[in-house]
Design a protein around this nucleic acid. Structure first.
Length: 408
RNA sequence: GGUGAGGUGGCAGAGUGGUUAUGCGUGGGCCUGCAAAGCCUAUCGAUAGGGGUUCGAAUCCCUUCCUCACCUCCA
């Protein structure tokens, strides 16, 4: 299987010689998840299901960032502990994503439960003189990692010219980023350097290495994480292990509304709960998979509506197969299925092109509906076609059986 | 300003040198008590503009314009 690797800018062959280890940067749990989160996670869900369907073992780790300024601010505003906020939205997360039929990850490590692991990593970086302690915390010294910028293709000089880096006299260099921030407020832990909390990026380095090792197969997330988050993760992790961090960096495009990124500040967020209530899980999954994962998808009623039409066709074919009777020749359907399988696999093997995979599936569905319309869909055909239908459907994890009023 | 990704029919989305797939939409028809769904059939492009390479370009090169993302937290 080939996957577009952000770092090398090439499609790279996924190593399936043994278990495939995937680390996906999850969400910061300070509010409801939105449809953009859903897209990234659904794309990885399909990747994972596809690999597993091929008999490949997948270890899938997805973190929760449960220590963060946004969580702390919200906790202050509501006058509760930060942990109350994060546990509320973790619960919320599982509710949303279970309803979206996303398989649970192998493990959901939380930042707050890996403070020791992060501190160990920071200690190592300080010993290597790549990190330093200053007035406000511990910082990573970007100048000690010559390859800094290799993922996002940024040059250090350009970054400085951007002049948007925060000015902080406690840092040796404006580009340096925090590994540990001193603070005595609510979520804080003792450390060799003083009480405080971890910086954002260090958790993913510490947890991915802990659970997946130094050099795992795929590290993923939304495109917006490329810089600075993943860039910083590479700097920390590779400085620590002296090995290439992830073999493939896979980034999922943004969901936009009127061609603008969904974001809190623009107030154009569509929460998963909202979309779920209005359209349901199948339509959301179809919508999220309707374009290539690396490109943006524009959220619109029109596109969702189109997916409703498609979903009805799928439902209809399932219903027809379930209700079919009689015997008949199955060679034609066997050929259709074998074509469909071939096409389905080959487009997914080619950088997980879910849009084309869905096309292959819809083509098959349409064939079934044609047979049904001409009264030639027999039970013997359905017996051959249903397993294929269900297998395809499983990759996308559509909810079928529940929805059929006349289903057996 | 820097970096990256793009600009293909009303919309979505393939196609990396040789009849511009496919789906949605739209028109007509079949089916149906009506509608929806389903099925059949028809229908649309001068592939952002301009130059170049070539027998031949959406596809390669140059150039102009436009869009988005990242450069601050972000899936």
């Amino acid at each position: 299987m080939k996957i577009l690797d952000t770092l090398s800018k090439n499609e790279k062959e996924l190593d399936i010689s043994s278990k495939v280890r995937i680390y996906l940067c999850g969400v910061t749990v300070y509010d409801e998840s939105h449809i953009g989160h859903a897209r990234t996670i659904i794309v990885f869900d399909v990747l994972r299901r596809y690999l597993e369907s091929k008999g490949i073992e997948v270890e899938f780790i997805q973190n929760f960032t449960d220590v963060d300024d946004k969580i702390i601010n919200r906790a202050k505003r509501e006058n509760v502990k930060a942990s109350a906020i994060s546990s509320r939205y973790i619960e919320n997360y599982f509710k949303d994503f279970d309803d979206l039929n996303v398989l649970r990850a192998t493990r959901y490590p939380k930042a707050t439960e890996h403070i020791q692991d992060m501190q160990k990593l920071i200690i190592d970086l300080i010993e290597k003189k790549i990190a330093y302690v200053s007035k406000n915390g511990v910082y990573f010294s970007v100048s000690k990692f010559p390859e800094y910028g290799k993922l996002s293709k940024k040059k250090i000089g350009d970054l400085l010219a951007g002049a948007r880096v925060e000015v902080d006299e406690a840092k040796n260099d404006p580009l340096d980023f925090a590994l540990w921030k001193f603070s005595k407020d609510d979520p804080s832990w003792d450390s060799p350097w003083g009480r405080g909390r971890p910086g954002w990026h260090i958790e993913c380095s510490a947890m991915s290495i802990k659970y997946l090792g130094d050099n795992f197969e795929i590290h993923g997330g939304g495109r917006d994480l490329i810089f600075p988050h993943h860039e910083n993760e590479i700097a920390q992790s590779e400085s620590h292990t002296s090995k290439p961090f992830a073999k493939i960096w896979m980034h999922v495009g943004m969901i936009t509304i009127n061609n603008e990124k969904m974001s809190k500040s623009k107030g154009n967020i569509k929460s998963i709960r909202h979309v779920l209530e209005n359209w349901g899980p199948n339509i959301i999954r179809l919508f999220c998979l309707s374009g290539h994962y690396s490109k943006p998808i524009d959220y619109s009623e029109e596109l969702l509506q189109e997916n409703i039409t498609k979903w009805r066709q799928v439902e209809s074919s399932y219903y027809e197969m379930k209700l079919s009777i009689g015997n008949g020749d199955t060679t034609k359907i066997e050929n259709i299925i074998s074509e469909s399988k071939k096409e389905f696999d080959s487009v997914l093997e080619n950088d997980l092109n879910t849009h084309l995979a869905l096309s292959a599936f819809f083509k098959f569905v349409n064939q079934i509906n044609q047979l049904a319309a001409s009264d030639s869909l027999t039970k013997s055909i359905a017996d051959v076609a249903l397993p294929h239908f269900e297998k395809n459907g499983k990759y996308f994890r559509f909810n079928t059986s529940k929805n059929f009023r006349n289903g057996n």
